[in-house]
């Protein structure tokens, strides 16, 4: 089983590990690279040009059902943009589905390494995992009620995958500790709370009061997740360091 806290050892990445070689490295900087060619601002030119020329990631699909066509058409006639709401709902669905998998990985790490000094329990982790699945289903039903296709990957849903790539890697690396994984989950839960709040507000704005109420309930649960993860992570670090 891997150690639960950082260990002293033969880390070779810093310059102080090899003063002799580093002295030569820095000599080279002075002797062989005396000229600063170009301006650092040149670095952004290609980026700016590409941003100007870029296509978008993709689109939100049109409504899949007759009910959706009617509902979306009516909203479009009144000037609102239902695709924005659908896109953010799809993002939440992707996030909750991915979040469930992050908790799956966290539970495996917990079962392998134990809670350390975090105070986390399997029961609580399993409960949060079940909440994530329930929230996923809640969003799927919301998308369906609006005539959308919950299996479609919209642009915002696509971005979720890129955003959380690092979290997935940390959670699933056998070399990371339970505490490292809690830190990654804290990042996930912090943004999740804000996202549910935004979604509830959006639902109210587009007149979907029933959905808004359900999303506020989900927000309450996510706040509990955040409190748990934050306190577990803090306990795991504080008790390691002292």
């Amino acid at each position: 089983m891997s150690a639960q806290q950082a260990q002293m050892g033969m880390n070779r990445t810093g310059v102080m590990t090899s003063p002799h070689e580093t002295k030569k490295l820095l000599e080279a900087e002075d002797a062989l690279n005396p000229l600063f060619e170009g301006e650092p601002a040149d670095f952004v030119d290609i980026k700016v040009q590409s941003i100007t020329d870029a296509d978008r990631l993709g689109s939100v699909p049109p409504p899949a059902s007759l009910k959706g066509v009617v509902k979306t058409g009516a909203k479009m006639l009144t000037g609102s943009k239902p695709q924005v709401f659908l896109d953010k709902l799809s993002k939440r669905a992707a996030y909750e589905r991915g979040g469930t998998r992050l908790y799956d990985a966290l539970i495996v790490k917990f079962q392998s390494n134990g809670p350390g000094s975090s105070g986390a329990t399997l029961e609580e982790l399993t409960k949060i995992r079940a909440d994530e699945v329930a929230h996923y289903h809640l969003v799927v039903e919301a998308i369906e009620s609006l005539g959308g296709d919950p299996t479609a990957q919209t642009p915002s849903a696509d971005i979720v995958g890129v955003e959380t790539m690092g979290l997935m890697q940390v959670l699933n690396d056998p070399r990371t500790t339970f505490s490292d994984c809690l830190n990654a989950m804290l990042i996930a839960e912090l943004t999740d709370v804000d996202a549910w709040n935004l979604l509830a507000n959006l639902a109210e704005d587009v007149g979907e009061d029933e959905l808004a109420s359900q999303f506020r309930e989900a927000l309450l649960a996510e706040n509990h997740h955040l409190q748990h993860v934050r306190s577990w992570y803090q306990a795991s670090v504080v008790n390691q360091a002292t």
Binding site: V15, N33, F36, E37, E39, D42
Partner: peptide
């Protein structure tokens, strides 16, 4: 239409 290898290191001096 531009050269990435020049742009990326414009004014770059390695520093630990």
């Amino acid at each position: 239409e531009g050269v990435a290898s020049d742009a990326v290191a414009a004014g770059y001096h390695f520093q630990p």
